[in-house]
């Protein structure tokens, strides 16, 4: 188990280094000089040079990479070109919106998907199953920004239960914050829950067809007991994989939803930073997202090992 853990940890570290190099190089080759963008087209050459010096844009690629990556290690992400405040501060603020939003959406999607998937699988071929499959088909097909706008129309404009957008900040209280995140979280969770339901159902059905379920039934377990005691945990492995992927997507992929609801999250930050060539912010946010994705996959790997003894004993 310890070796499994250390091996995963090593691969986590290597992935991070590889990702940082790729991100750095990708943004290096993107056309557009941030200094020129900030000073406008009429700037003097020496002013530009001075600004470049100040922003740390001079020097060889290796020097710049090392100073950037070195900074990341100690939590120094550099200073934003446009906002002129430390990127870490900027990201920290936004993370407090994006991370809770992703967790909220993931919780919702899991809370819907597990019961729905289990329900559909245990009544395979019935109206319940057909119904669940139909609804999830729709859920996968509907674009979430359209669904988001529909919800704004119904719950914010007509019913006035929620505000149409914006975020009051956590200073206003946890409930107020959660309330502001509810509609975006539902919009994000809908397609994810639909996919997860279908994965849960098919994984559970596959497991229910396994020989050891027949063994369990021959021991005298009822259909339900066999499912809860033997099938469910075995069916979780593909479900965990999808959940890991989904969380990464929720964290990184909320750009559209954050724009629809006007939330000050990471997605919007990246969006704005790209349009203003604030490369240091883009690099840092992308790096952070990569880190999150890798960390989530790492946790999923550990979760596999908890679920499956065969992985624990593998050398």
């Amino acid at each position: 188990m310890l070796q499994y853990f250390l091996k995963r940890l090593l691969s986590l570290g290597l992935s991070l280094v590889a990702a940082s190099i790729v991100i750095f190089l990708a943004l290096e080759v993107v056309p557009g000089d941030p200094a020129a963008y900030m000073l406008g087209i009429n700037a003097q050459e020496d002013t530009l040079n001075a600004l470049r010096e100040q922003l740390g844009l001079n020097g060889t690629i290796l020097q710049r990479y090392l100073s950037w990556a070195g900074g990341l290690l100690v939590g120094d992400f550099g200073t934003s070109y446009t906002y002129r405040i430390p990127v870490a501060e900027l990201i920290g603020e936004r993370l407090w919106v994006s991370l809770p939003l992703a967790l909220y959406a993931l919780t919702l999607s899991t809370m819907i998907a597990f019961p729905a998937g289990i329900w559909a699988a245990s009544r395979r071929g019935s109206y319940v199953d057909t119904g669940v499959m139909g609804v999830t088909q729709l859920g996968v097909a509907i674009p979430n920004f359209w669904f988001a706008m529909l919800m704004v129309l119904v719950f914010a404009i007509n019913l006035r239960w929620f505000s149409a957008g914006g975020f009051p900040g956590w200073d206003e209280g946890v409930l107020a914050g959660l309330k502001a995140l509810t509609l975006p979280a539902v919009a994000l969770a809908l397609p994810q829950a639909s996919i997860l339901t279908r994965v849960m159902r098919s994984s559970l059905l596959d497991t229910l067809g396994e020989d050891f379920i027949r063994s369990a039934r021959a021991k005298g377990l009822s259909r339900g007991q066999a499912m809860w005691r033997h099938a469910l945990r075995n069916a979780l492995i593909p479900v965990l994989t999808i959940m890991g992927l989904q969380f990464s997507f929720l964290l990184a992929g909320a750009i559209i939803i954050e724009n629809v609801f006007y939330l000050p999250g990471l997605g919007r930050l990246v969006f704005q930073a790209i349009s203003s060539r604030d490369l240091i912010v883009v690099e840092s946010v992308v790096m952070l997202l990569v880190f999150a994705v890798i960390l989530v996959n790492f946790s999923v790997d550990l979760a596999y090992a908890l679920v499956d003894p065969r992985l624990r004993s593998r050398r």
Binding site: D211, F212, R214, S215, A216, N234
Partner: peptide, 13 residues
């Protein structure tokens, strides 16, 4: 009851 396939007749977890 005892079945044919011992490799899959037991719950691996």
């Amino acid at each position: 009851m005892v079945f044919q396939e011992p490799m899959t007749a037991l719950n691996p977890l």
